[in-house]
């Protein structure tokens, strides 16, 4: 669960916003991040720790490096899934409207008796 206070605190700093903008282009190592910002690696690492704690970035271990990338947006991801479900169900139920219209009440009663 993402804590909104952490998220906003993390986003309040211009350097951290710039780091996120850089990560939007793809996964990056601390060394690569430190160069354009003219900051020491420990200083960048402190910013990354704040971003990681806020759930905004993910880091993995690759040898001695710890490349970071943007965390997928949990809310947006749920919305995408719900949109897909809505689309599939809408298509199904629109089709079901036609099936129900074709069934008709008389046919329905007769067929049900005959089936068992």
């Amino acid at each position: 669960m993402r804590n909104l206070d952490h998220t906003f605190a993390a986003l309040a700093d211009p350097t951290r916003r710039a780091i996120l903008a850089r990560l939007a282009l793809g996964e990056t190592t601390v060394m690569e991040l430190a160069q354009p910002f003219e900051m020491t690696q420990p200083a960048i690492s402190r910013h990354l720790k704040v971003l990681e704690d806020a759930g905004l970035i993910l880091r993995r271990v690759e040898g001695t490096k710890r490349p970071c990338r943007l965390a997928p947006d949990a809310t947006r991801e749920v919305d995408a899934w719900l949109a897909m479900l809505r689309k599939a169900l809408s298509a199904n139920y629109d089709r079901l409207d036609g099936v129900l219209a074709a069934m008709g009440p008389a046919k329905h009663a007769k067929k049900r008796k005959g089936r068992r």
């Binding site: 599939a88 298509a91 199904n92 139920y93 089709r95 079901l96 409207d97 036609g98 099936v99 129900l100 219209a101 069934m103 009440p105 329905h108 049900r112 089936r115």
Partner: peptide, 24 residues
């Protein structure tokens, strides 16, 4: 749905009917 609950229920439990609409 513009049909009685009996019909809608049956459309959810009769394979012949399900195959007509639960298709994505």
């Amino acid at each position: 749905f513009a049909a009685a609950p009996e019909a809608v229920y049956r459309a959810h439990t009769d394979p012949k009917l399900i195959q007509k609409w639960m298709l994505g």
